[in-house]
Design a binder for these strands. Sequence first.
DNA 1: TTATGTGAACTAATTCACAGCG
DNA 2: CGCTGTGAATTAGTTCACATAA
Lengths: 223, 223
Amino acid sequence: MEDASIQSVPYPTIKRYPAYLQVLKELKSTGITTVSARDIAERLGLNQVQVRKDLGYSAIIGRPKVGYDIEQLTSALHQLLGWQDPKEAFLIGAGALGSALLGYRGFQEYGLDIVAAFDLDPSKHNTAIHGKKVFPMERVPELAKRMGVLIAVLTVPESAAQECADLLIQAGIRGIWSFSPCKIEVPDNVVVQREELSAGLAVLSVRLSEMLKHENNGPSAPV
Amino acid sequence: MEDASIQSVPYPTIKRYPAYLQVLKELKSTGITTVSARDIAERLGLNQVQVRKDLGYSAIIGRPKVGYDIEQLTSALHQLLGWQDPKEAFLIGAGALGSALLGYRGFQEYGLDIVAAFDLDPSKHNTAIHGKKVFPMERVPELAKRMGVLIAVLTVPESAAQECADLLIQAGIRGIWSFSPCKIEVPDNVVVQREELSAGLAVLSVRLSEMLKHENNGPSAPV
DNA sequence: TTATGTGAACTAATTCACAGCG
DNA sequence: CGCTGTGAATTAGTTCACATAA
């Protein structure tokens, strides 16, 4: 009766975990061994109750007056995220954004190891970008099976997204991190996570416009 | 009495607008002039009522049986987002992620035009990455004022984030799109929007792990 | 009949308020 | 006290159900 496995941790919480891990890592590097929820909250600009609630989904318990053991907490969060051991991934679409991500070593921290890139464009084949070889799309099935790769980062133009996804699915890929803003149809046993870079920019724009607007109206006439 | 300007549009809605714009753009390119909420919803995998509610924040009204005028809707959303005319921006931190973003032309679509890059590392100064010149950080104030730049994309290591932000603020930058997962202290008249690339990856990981787990347990014993 | 538009119901997430522990 | 942990209240967002318009 302790199942609780059908996505018991809310997504907003999951999204905050990587930031928590970052803080823990930084603290650990300074030699500190425990941390309070308040401290984490302050470093990230969050509400401390929210942090406690979030951490509550892990099995580990904090000690009053002391806080949480950093080591324990780190591995608990890694476990909740499925980041115990790094997952190998393919990158599909070696265009501007794709090349960029190939060079970004930050993913390693998040348990993602991009091992190869693929592209439809023959002129890119057998070149290497940031040390990662670029293969023709047709080789995805073969290499995915050989290397046991289950995750793909999809950075192709929208028009090619579904086509590429279909090929990935055939090749046994089970998780697709898509940077295209369109829907991708997949069977039930495949997960698509859409990353909307533009969403954050939209929020920034709006907040900025509103601030500037209020500055012009605000101080004087409230008509 | 028609103020309604104090952030009347909810953030989740704002985050969906860029995707709507993408759909509108695609439809427009095929010569279609109107679109229904249902159509938008289907293309993006959203609920059609949600789309209607979202569009309702714009002044434009849809015609029953016909839908919304694509042209009108596009400019209304642009207006709501403050994307009428492209905003010039600086990129701070020409590391792996920064270089990647410099090469990504997609931002132009979202009204953001990165016009120059800056870095603390002298070895990068006066080089160009993807056609964008890299300047020393010290020149931010001068160039920001000269070009009237108000937005900065911050892709520096966490340890340098606050320091760089301080310099940006001094230089008159009012909006910071930060790719570091740490809090940045700014005065009230500056907006910081944090982009957590790892958040999406975390969600993907969890959804994938859960699916794989259920596959192993699921079909057989529900103990 | 095919669409929009919207009050009402529902669901999810955050925050409050306080109990408990070392 | 300084901290965790959690039920209760609140707020925000989504979805339902239905009125309405062409």
